[in-house]
Write a protein that binds this DNA or RNA. Structure first.
Lengths: 343, 343
DNA sequence: TTGTAAGCGTTATCAG
DNA sequence: CTGATAACGCTTACAA
């Protein structure tokens, strides 16, 4: 086992990279001095520090994160758990998170909590002990599961709230208000919410706020259940959408809005001529869909970045940074228009 | 430092999770027995093994991957480096890779090699020592940079070739043939390739193969440069596209195809009436864009999964698994039509 | 079948 | 300012 040749075979072609011991040996110093020089600049004689740095560069030294982690208990890795990579909303989230991680010197570890919690537990079991904390953007996890996770590691929720756990959630109230106001201006008096999955916190809350504002605007409001928060789910809801008699539909997300408006057109129902459709999130494609989708944009990339910053500040036991406002914005496109009195 | 209270404060609320020592102690066994029981089923008395497993579950034990890695040299983490998360092609890649990782008991670590190699080196420096190997789907990395990386860790390239490094690349030849054949059948005799970035291996090779087949089909072939492989890049190429006089455009990717065909419509040029547009990849949105895009689909999710499997087999020094054929498929939609003799 | 002990590469404490 | 030395949690000869 101490035989270098033996190690090499188990290592594949990965040459055993240099350690602080190697540096120490070639310089006739002690490993602890090397460690200090590399991590605590200034606490070591300037000249020796330089010699050490040069030697390190020479040998192509890179500190072994595992060894460091073993001692410090910190891996400088953050986990990101999302529920469904198929949904483009997560792209911006991932992107924002990855960017912030980089800036803060962290590495992003990735997991998709597909399907049931059972199925994914293997993934989470592997993920959790490897990271200093996790971002949870997993609508499918139950509150209990989340509480459990929060018991064993630092957690920041994204797009969801559970108890008092730290969470980054773009404003929902304002978005609902903007959407309803837009429809009101167009003369709609009868709207329906094409709901997301009942287990989804965000889907429920959007529905609630939409209801609030619709009522306040003196509108008729119906809630239409759906099979899944996807394009297929949106399309499949067509019958109930028609049956509702509403002149405007607020879909839980853009995926459903796209699916629904396409299904409408295929059924000979004009969007927005016969019916208006509003989505949420402003995902990739909402602008070039046919019709393009009027939507309430959520700054998910910012949310990802904010969540990372919050998590890191928690790890460092600092004051949380002043959370940037994650404001929502109505983007008006082709899928909404004047209410038709006919129908 | 041995004081538990002291540790707790540095740990935040993360309760110091149980170790094999804890299990050993509560059971009056030795740590090595516990380790064996958990990792080498069968090499320990069945009854004690059960006791150990129960105790482990009881204490909520999870093995510390860092500690294990320190000894074995294997972290069971794989890196995935992509060049630009903004491009939806990568979604499927990430998804496929994540899925395969799960199945094989690996964890996926994620990095975006945005911008120049300089900027990202910090990221890579952090990533490389933490993983057992990397998937490189980074068109922006130079061949030299890739060779360097391959010198220090196991590497599998995706959608690209460099020297003899292991690579997963969906068939290109067939895709080019399919696209050209489709246009030939529609009567096009004059086509142009809206090129991707010259540094991109895939962009160059697609151009070459397209040229081969266009020539073989007796077509006129022009290559149009572009600013960037994005929707904006596609739209910005409109002038040169018109100037080319080609009746059909083969865009380097769907993003460009979408951008171009939209720009055409806005300029009053009908797609496919006046000009046909073909894309590559079949990204999310290609089917609901307006017009929907005829495209050569690459199975990027399969590619991601295959790449992971290949990498893992290399790590285990096994025979590479019989690589599944990554076949390409022409998806005909609205953006292509009969060639117009006018123009 | 089980226990003992060494070592993986760091960091941190405590002397010199 | 620098050098021993003891952890960190786990695996694996080797011994019992």
């Amino acid at each position: 086992m101490t035989d270098p040749v033996e190690r090499e075979t188990t290592n594949g072609n990965r040459k055993p990279s240099a350690t602080i011991y190697d540096i120490a040996r070639t310089l006739g110093l002690s490993p602890s001095t090397v460690s200090r020089a590399l991590n605590k600049p200034g606490r070591v004689n300037a000249k020796t520090e330089k010699r050490i740095r040069d030697a390190a560069a020479d040998l192509g030294y890179r500190s072994n994160p595992m060894a460091r982690a073993l001692h410090t208990g910190r891996t400088r890795m953050l986990g990101l758990v999302v529920s469904d990579l198929t949904n483009p909303v997560f792209f911006s989230l991932v992107r924002g998170a990855e960017k912030a991680c980089n800036e803060l010197g962290y590495t992003l570890v990735f997991a998709e909590s597909q399907e049931s919690a059972e199925a994914e537990s293997g993934t989470l079991d592997r993920l959790l002990p490897a990271v200093d904390g996790v971002l949870l953007a997993a609508a499918r996890l139950s509150d209990e599961e989340i509480t459990t996770i929060a018991g064993s590691t630092q957690v920041v929720l994204v797009n969801r709230r559970v108890d008092d756990l730290p969470a980054i959630v773009p404003e929902i109230e304002a978005g609902a208000a903007q959407a309803i106001e837009h429809l009101r201006e167009l003369g709609h008096t009868s709207v329906a919410y094409l709901a997301g999955p009942p287990q989804s916190w965000m889907a429920r809350v959007r529905g609630e706020r939409l209801l609030d504002h619709a009522v306040a605007a003196g509108m008729t409001f119906a809630e239409i259940p759906s099979e899944s928060p996807t394009r297929e789910g949106g399309a499949a809801a067509l019958r109930r959408v028609r049956a509702s008699g509403a002149t405007a539909i607020l879909a839980y997300n853009d995926l459903m809005a796209i699916g629904l408006s396409r299904a409408c057109r295929e059924a000979g129902i004009d969007v927005p001529g016969d019916i208006s459709v509003v989505g949420f999130d402003d995902i990739f494609g909402a602008d070039f869909a046919n019709p393009s989708i009027t939507t309430v944009r959520s700054p998910l990339d910012q949310a990802g970045a904010e969540a990372v910053r919050l998590l890191v500040s928690m790890l460092d036991e600092e004051q949380a940074p002043p959370a940037a406002e994650l404001t929502t914005e109505l983007v008006v496109r082709e899928s909404t228009g004047e209410a038709t009195s006919s129908q």
